[in-house]
């Protein structure tokens, strides 16, 4: 029986820039930063209030995991905003929206009422999109 998700991956164009975005703009914390000799860095981040999750920020330019041609195609797709990697929740979407906007986060949808609460959408520094949701109380 699978009990939980411990790691997930977001593919990003540039790991340093992604680190700056997720830590200094979204307010996440670095969970692990491990230089692997001269081969690259293993970097995981997560929202401060979610201790059980690690999101690894994997650059698509390494040419190893994907092969150089696939890495280039993947980078194009990311830039074009083809991928949505998840939904982030917050306690108050209007305050979160105001704060992230003031830090330069690009929103593609303003907070909008939906059946399960209020939802907005934003992009990370690579072009990946995410939903930002404030759930209605008691709504699963």
């Amino acid at each position: 029986m699978i009990t939980r998700l411990s790691h997930c991956s977001f593919f990003v164009l540039d790991q340093d820039s992604a680190k700056d975005f997720y830590v200094n703009k979204l307010g996440f914390e670095v969970r692990l930063y491990a230089p692997i000799g001269d081969k690259g860095h293993w970097l995981t981040v997560a929202p401060k209030d979610q201790p059980e999750l690690e999101i690894s920020l994997i650059p698509v330019d390494n040419g190893i995991m994907f092969g150089p041609d696939i890495a280039a195609r993947l980078a194009d797709l990311i830039r074009e905003g083809s991928f949505g990697f998840g939904v982030f929740e917050c306690t108050d979407i209007y305050a979160t929206y105001e704060e992230l906007k003031s830090k330069g986060v690009e929103f593609t949808k303003e907070p909008t009422k939906v059946v399960y609460g209020i939802e907005a959408m934003f992009k990370d520094d690579s072009g990946n999109w995410f939903a930002l949701v404030q759930k209605k109380e008691g709504y699963k």
Binding site: H7, S9, L32, A34, P35, I36, G37, K39, G40, W42, S56, I58, N62, I64, M65
Partner: peptide, 20 residues
């Protein structure tokens, strides 16, 4: 521990796929 054995802290499947 991270400095000495960084790969002990990376899920092995990822280390393998990343060529580490």
């Amino acid at each position: 521990s991270i400095a000495k054995e960084p790969l002990n802290h990376v899920p092995q499947c990822f280390a393998e796929k990343l060529g580490w």
